[in-house]
Write a protein that binds this DNA or RNA. Structure first.
Lengths: 107, 107
DNA sequence: TAAGATTACATAGAACTGCAAGGTATGTCA
DNA sequence: TGACATACCTTGCAGTTCTATGTAATCTTA
């Protein structure tokens, strides 16, 4: 199944917020987490994710800090901010509301 | 609650398809139906809806025909095509899948 | 019966934006 | 040593969206 562009766009933010609500993560890992979570249906390009992360940070939903893998390679981790937590809650509610509207109409 | 732009964009198509799956309708009425269904939270501008309807028709999901209200005023009705029916089903599945992913992550 | 509100549809194009493409760099391992 | 995986970044424009604007018929009410 190919997910519609609109839906992918609309789901990316809540998905990232959700993932970060479980534990801090970094760009490259988030891509893989999404890939697994979706059973391979969502395959984000990295060039698509990083701008989203930057935008979310600018909005104050997430905060970044540099970390180090045990390999020595540096990673830019993100953590959910307080604002991001409330944003996540709101977006989940919105999804729920729209899902209900759409499925309520099902014959 | 202000619905995020992305979500509004992603939901407009399945919403319209859903409404038309119940019964044929026309632009002006669809706006009101969405307004009611959402308990006043979604307030589409007409200038926003008509282009969407045209796009959907171009994609073959809906078909238009001119009708007449009992008042004598002409109306452009839309009906769901076979293609639109299968598109609706797909989009509903996609919504479901993403909703599940997002809510499964909830702590 | 005139003015204002409502119903109803249409479209150009300004304004926005998403993301593909292209770039850099380090670690691993055969 | 070179191929592959890991890891991050940004620009630019192709494509989209919907605001602003226009038209016109019908209804209401004073």
């Amino acid at each position: 199944m190919i997910l519609s562009k609109d839906l992918v766009a609309a789901s990316s933010t809540p998905l990232i917020l959700s993932i970060l609500s479980i534990e801090d993560s970094y760009g490259y890992a988030i891509i893989q987490q999404v890939h697994e979570l979706s059973d391979g249906e969502l395959k984000w390009a990295d060039g698509m994710l990083y701008p989203i992360l930057h935008r979310m940070e600018k909005k104050g939903w997430i905060e970044s800090f540099w970390g180090q893998a045990n390999t020595g390679r540096k990673r830019k981790y993100y953590r959910l901010s307080a604002q991001g937590t409330s944003e996540l809650k709101q977006q989940q509610e919105q999804w729920q509301k729209l899902s209900n509207m759409i499925s309520k109409l099902e014959k």
